[in-house]
């Protein structure tokens, strides 16, 4: 049963990507993060590139699923094996996207980035900013609550296990990334990238940050609960908590989707094509923005050329992958 659930979870990723792939050509007339002529986006060449991309994603997922099917049965009782499989699938998808990005760059004629940029000199006090500020602060603090609460409770209980330190390291790393992301969306984003109207732009960014923080905050919450709740009670916890998590995340997604109709489609995109490394990672030292909307229409990308971004990401990734490697090593030794 666990094996089947794990394989379904692995397949969920390309399925979601497939659902979203139809939208990938929409943002600012880009296809796989390359600015193209609308005629090219509708051409047979573009359709062939999209087909090849989908084929690669599904093939890679099938390979991961087969590896899962052939793995020893014991592995499926460890939830972090699923994490590894999801990460491997994600890496495969990223490579497939990069290959599609290269194919479009080679085949489409280059379309230059707009030569003009506009900034609005609005006054700092805008109406309706207090609830947004509340959302933004909640977004920054929510992922920090589970590891802090878990740390305090574990210190009080004085019952450390081999998984406590790595799990807390992962949770703190997730919190660090979320604080950086929500901070960047509030203070380090170019308003016109998200919406022509500054007030709408800020609202859209606040909800985007909230969604991100909810998804990763819940991952952190579930991870920390694993440390605190006895294994026999985990089912009760998930039975109550998971539906609530899904509903809250769904509501946040709906709110953002409602805003999106008025925002991203009509916003400007001054980013040059060559700043999009592998089509998905934004690296532009000439740009002061800390975060920009992703051209793949799935979320946003930090500007990895900014020191505050790459320092935070390095520290956070050391925490996440270091913690994960430690847990895997401990599990393999105990098997």
């Amino acid at each position: 049963m666990t094996r089947i659930l794990a394989i379904l979870l692995v397949f969920a990723q390309p399925a979601i990507r497939d659902l979203l792939s139809g939208r990938w050509k929409t943002r600012g007339n880009t296809l796989f993060s390359v600015r193209v002529d609308p005629a090219f986006a509708a051409s047979d060449t573009a359709r062939a590139i999209m087909r090849t991309f989908r084929l690669r994603v599904w093939l890679w997922t099938a390979v991961v699923a087969v590896a899962f099917a052939l793995a020893p049965a014991d592995a499926f009782h460890r939830s972090h094996w699923i994490t590894v499989a999801l990460l491997v699938t994600l890496a495969g998808n990223t490579v497939a996207f990069a290959l599609a990005n290269r194919a479009v760059s080679t085949m489409a004629s280059p379309v230059p980035a707009p030569a003009t940029r506009t900034a609005t000199l609005h006054s700092p006090g805008e109406p309706g900013v207090v609830p947004l500020a509340l959302i933004e602060w909640c977004g920054m603090l929510f992922p920090l609550l589970p590891p802090v609460a878990a740390s305090i409770l574990l210190i009080l209980r004085a019952a450390p296990s081999v998984f406590v330190a790595p799990m807390l390291a992962i949770s703190y790393a997730i919190a660090l990334l979320q604080i950086q992301t929500v901070w960047s969306l509030r203070f380090g984003a170019r308003e016109s990238d998200w919406a022509p109207d500054p007030a709408l732009s800020r609202r859209y960014r606040a909800y985007s940050g909230l969604i991100n923080t909810l998804i990763f905050g819940f991952i952190s919450l579930n991870g920390c609960t694993l440390l605190l709740v006895p294994p026999g009670r985990m089912f009760t916890y998930f039975a109550v908590s998971l539906p609530a998590q899904i509903v809250v995340t769904f509501v946040a997604f709906r709110l953002r989707a409602w805003l999106k109709r008025h925002t991203v489609e009509s916003s400007s995109d001054p980013m040059p094509d060559d700043a999009w490394k592998w089509g998905q990672f934004y690296f532009n030292p000439a740009d002061s923005a800390l975060v920009v909307p992703a051209r793949s229409d799935v979320g946003f990308s930090p500007n990895f050329a900014r020191p505050s971004v790459w320092i935070t990401w390095t520290v956070a990734n050391l925490g996440v992958f270091g913690g994960l490697a430690y847990v895997l090593r401990a599990t393999l030794h105990s098997m």
Partner: peptide, 22 residues
């Protein structure tokens, strides 16, 4: 259009919006 006493956006804000260095 910008009367006396009007605050201009912080350097960092305007630089981000125009996509230039601070």
């Amino acid at each position: 259009a910008l009367p006396p006493g009007e605050a201009l956006p912080p350097v960092r804000r305007l630089a981000i919006d125009l996509g230039v260095h601070f």
